[in-house]
Design a protein around this nucleic acid. Structure first.
Lengths: 158, 158
DNA sequence: GATAATTTCCGGAAAATATACGGAAATATG
DNA sequence: CATATTTCCGTATATTTTCCGGAAATTATC
């Protein structure tokens, strides 16, 4: 019932490339292909592997702009409605409730400045409760990955 | 040489789940499995599909804290060295050069407050050129996905 | 508008892979 | 030390991926 060293190695491998065959994965972590299969199936069932997805190139799809939008809500009453609507917007990749001067931090991808303006003005600022927004444009991204550090647990529970 | 409607539908499908068989994908977009294979292979070769990866649950791996750290650099001379080092840190998921009061925005995952402190104090603030940092903790995340909007190009080029 | 050239698409065969399963090894338990 | 439990592995089978030749459709050319 714990995530051991082999699991972590497997996770590190597949969060980089999940289309390697079990045979390859097995070689890279000293197990047999069937054991790799068993473990991955279990990790998926346990929800530790949340999904296996393709990472697309936004620019190739015409999404040239990435922006971070900070949002202030007027009242806690408006939170549920805000989240409900914002989560459904396909241009919103991330929506975090954060500490600090603003309440929420959104990561947004749009085709161009005009499209970004439309998203912010027409789709976000019109949501009930949104009383302030502050936008920062990403000029470039040196790193942008969903991969996490599988290195080792904070403290080993024996 | 363009990304057509079928490509976009395929991309939308696999950025949600890339382990569906070609037969299933084919069914869902009205093509034959071999055509799906052809198209996906080409999209990968063109770099539109950048990777296929597993999305892991950070909390299951003991990464309980997500934080956004804004960084100011003292001088353009220090940019290259900063990026070089910051990109290599496994706890840094994203590093964007942004407009606004700060220069860079980092998304960081750590086990706990202590580990986050260590990362910021020992690994980031020690990088040459870093003269200011501002950290916001994510209390919760309503959405956090690498998926983009495949809906349709900004304007169809005929 | 007919013909040719190019591209896209498809079916089927072969190879590679994933999956299921029974039993062996290792580990934990009493 | 015996037993129970878990992890691991090899093998056999089912599924999938991959390749290839040709048909269909689209586009270009005259």
């Amino acid at each position: 019932m714990e995530v051991d060293q082999s699991d972590r190695r497997l996770l590190a491998l597949i969060q980089d490339d999940c289309r390697q065959s079990y045979a390859e994965l097995a070689k890279q972590c000293g197990l047999s292909p069937s054991t790799v299969h068993d473990r991955l199936k279990r990790l998926q069932a346990r929800g530790i592997i949340k999904a296996q997805v393709a990472i697309l190139d936004p620019i190739a799809l015409g999404l040239d702009i990435c922006a971070f939008v900070q949002i202030t809500l007027s009242h806690p009453k408006t939170v549920a409605g805000f989240l409900d609507k914002v989560v459904k917007l396909p241009e919103v990749q991330e929506c975090h409730h954060v500490t600090g001067d603003f309440d929420y931090l959104l990561k947004i991808r749009a085709s161009n400045a005009l499209a970004l303006e439309r998203t912010i003005t027409d789709k976000i600022k019109t949501i009930e409760g949104v009383i302030r927004s502050h936008t920062a444009i990403a000029l470039s991204s040196a790193k942008d990955t969903p991969a996490v550090d599988c290195g080792r647990t904070s403290q080993d529970q024996s």
